[in-house]
Every structure is written in structure tokens, then in C-alpha cells.
Amino acid sequence: MDRNIISYFFLRLIQSIFSILGAVIIIFILSRVLPGNPAIAILGPKATPENIERVMKEWGLDKNYLEQFSIYISRLVQGDLGNSYIMGISVNKLVIERLPASFELVVFAFIISLIIGIPLGIFIAKKHDSKLDLIFSSTSILGFSFPTMLLGILLLLFFGLGLHLPVGGRLDPRYTIKVYTGFMLIDTLLNGNIAAFIDAFLRIIPPALTLAIPLTCLMVRFTRNSVLEVMMQDFVKTAKMKRLPESIVMYRHILRNALVPIITIAGLYFAVLVTGDIIVETIFAWPGLGRLIWEAVTLRDYMVIQGAVLVVSIIYISVNAIVDILYFYIDPRIKG
């Protein structure tokens, strides 16, 4: 049993490394075959061939792809993602500046959807096949069918102009906050600035809701379904026949088993969302990874594209791997 898990762990680890390697190559190729180049993007209509050529030469982009790739890899293995051509600064720094913003937003959205989604799902499962169940199950499908591009802007207007709450960005720029962790909600508290904390808290709600509404609906559905599934199983029926109190059956027997698939699904979604939602980050002026990638793509800032997408991919692949391993640990019948 244990040996099984260890060997599965290593198998998954090797697979992940291969995936990351593959991602590095794909991103490199994709960014280079994008039409145009960073010099053209910055020079605009005045980019004569000579101007482009000399700027590209200055940036080391006149070398052939293989040479560029080997330079990139040799720096990458030292943990250096290279320098942005256009901004002239290190990509490591850029990514580290942006990552906490995306992370904080997604964690916040997740907390909302778990806190609401799981209890609601359990509640509906208990009342399954009633009218209430039908209503909630259908509304939960509504939630994840709604286009985020519209939901985001409507929430922005509702919170900003309807409720007169602060929107846009992570914090009112007039607050000066010393950065410790990069997470605004924690940093404001560490600074002992309650007013700033409240401001940051209010600002994170609308973008987090934009992400959380579909996610919550998803959680409700998964929770309902997996709780129902466990409730139908024999050991639960036995427990009920033994006349154990209902709450004990629910929490000791049913939930413990039902939570496994829920956590799995949540993990997978977390992996997707933490990569940054370009549309939400644009609407709410949220300086996250998604925007960084989009800005880099539109400027053809190769090093930033490569670096940011690589970091995102690594997070994504690792979370997936962890979820798989967890799942294997819990239910070794499943094979990847």
C-alpha cells in the first residue's frame, strides 16, 4: 500500500517534470511565432526595418532561435527568468510582484464559495427530491452559465455606483502601506491600519464575487451530488439502522467520504483560477498575473510571456499533481 503510493508519487513527479519541460518548449515556440516582435510593438508606425533591426540586435533577438533558447534555458536552470526587453527589469521581480494579487483574489473567492457552497450543498442533499432541491439545483446551473465579462461589469457598476463602495484596484492609493507579504489584506493588518484593511477588503469583494458566483454554484452541485451518492451507500444505511444520531451519521460517515471528491474538484478549479482571469483583472484594475501575461503578449515581450506563463504552468501542473496524489491516496483504485 505505502510502496504503491510512493511509486505513484514518483511516477507523477516525473510526469510533471516532463509536462513542465514540454510547456517551456511550447511557450518558447508560440511566443516566437507570434507575428511581430517587441521592437515593432514599441516603435509603432515609425518602425523602419533599420530601426527594428538595431533595437532587436541590442536586445539579443537577432540571434537564431536555437541560440536564444539555449541562453534562455541556461539562465532558467539557475532560476532566472530573464529580463523584460521593454521594461528592462527582471521577470522574476515582475512575477513576484503580480503573483500575490492573483493568489489573494482567488483564495478569497474560494473561501466565499466553499463557505457558501458546501453547507448549501449538504442542505440540499438532505432535502433531495423536494421542490427546494429542484429550485436550488436549477439555479446552480444558472450560476455557471452566466458570462463573466458581463457579470464583472455589472458587479462593478452595482458596487461602485449603486452601493457607493470603493472599486478598482487593491487599495486606495492614498494609503501608504509597507509591503511584507504582498497580500493586501494581511499587509494592511500588519501595518496596523484598520481603515486601509477595510478599504482593501471592500475592494476585493466585487472581483472575488465575479469569480465566486460560478464557483459557488459548482460547489453546490458537486457537494449535493457526492453527498447523495454516499448517502445511498450500504455503510450509511447500516449506520442509520444502528440508530446512530443523524448528525453523527451525517458528519462522521457521510461528509468524511463525500468531501474527498469535493476537495478534488475544488483543487482542480483552484489550479485553473490561480493563473489569473484576464477579463476580471482588467475590469477591476487588478494587477494580477493574467493581466501581466496579456500585456506581455500585446507587446511581444517574449521573456515576460515565457516567464509568467511558465510560473503559471508550474503552479497549475503542481496543483493537479497534488490533487491526483491525494486522490490516489484516498482511493487507490483510481489510476491516472
Partner: peptide, 20 residues
């Protein structure tokens, strides 16, 4: 493994890159 590589890059970002 080929499929893993496609999956390793978040979907929307990959779609943007390919479309661009």
C-alpha cells in the same frame, strides 16, 4: 504526454496564443 503538455498551459492563455 502530448495531451499533458497541451493541458499544462492554462486553456484560455493557450487559446489566446494560438489565435494570435
Amino acid at each position: 504526454r502530448l495531451m499533458d503538455i497541451v493541458i499544462s498551459i492554462p486553456g484560455f492563455i493557450l487559446a489566446i496564443a494560438i489565435a494570435a
